[in-house]
Simulated scan of single mutants.
Amino acid sequence: MIGALLLGLVCGVLARMLVPGDAFRHMSGPKSWLVSIGLGLLGALLGYLIFTLGLGIGDTDIFDWGGLVGALIGTIIVVPIATMILRRRSHSPT
């Protein structure tokens, strides 16, 4: 469990640094850390689905450090999608 949270944090922080203009740039403190962990865990799950189940390569454990590259790639995919959803939601009339 702790390893999964650390993997999510590392992948979330790295992906947020690599993706320019994400919607989470204004956050700081604990809220920023929680968003990074959440994005990283979603990215790890997406990376697992793409590489292990879809392509048949990679580590067979979802939240394992062996799948760091796949988790990072998945998180880099998740961050722009989450940014697009948040921006669309904030600009839509309610």
Rank of each mutant, 00 (worst) to 15 (best):
L41M: 14
I2S: 11
G43W: 03
M27D: 14
F24W: 09
T60H: 12
F51E: 05
I85S: 01
P93L: 10
C11D: 08
R16I: 06
A71K: 00
L49S: 08
D59S: 12
I77R: 03
V79T: 03
R88M: 10
S92C: 10
T83L: 00
L68M: 08
S36V: 04
L55W: 11
R89L: 15
D22Q: 08
G74Q: 00
I85M: 09
A4K: 02
G58W: 05
F51I: 01
R89H: 12
G12V: 03
C11N: 13
R88I: 01
H26Y: 15
T52R: 15
G66S: 07
G40F: 08
I57C: 08
M27L: 15
V69Q: 05
L42W: 13
I73A: 12
L6D: 04
G43Q: 07
F51A: 07
V69W: 06
I76Y: 02
A82Q: 00
R16V: 02
G67I: 00
L49Y: 06
R89F: 11
I76C: 14
D22C: 09
L49C: 12
R25A: 15
L41Q: 06
I2Y: 10
L45R: 09
L49M: 13
S28A: 14
W65N: 01
S36E: 09
L42E: 08
F24K: 03
D22S: 12
L18H: 01
V19W: 00
S36T: 06
G66F: 07
T52M: 10
F51K: 01
G21Y: 09
L6Q: 08
G12H: 00
L7K: 07
M27R: 14
P30R: 14
D61S: 08
L55C: 07
D64F: 12
I85W: 07
R16L: 06
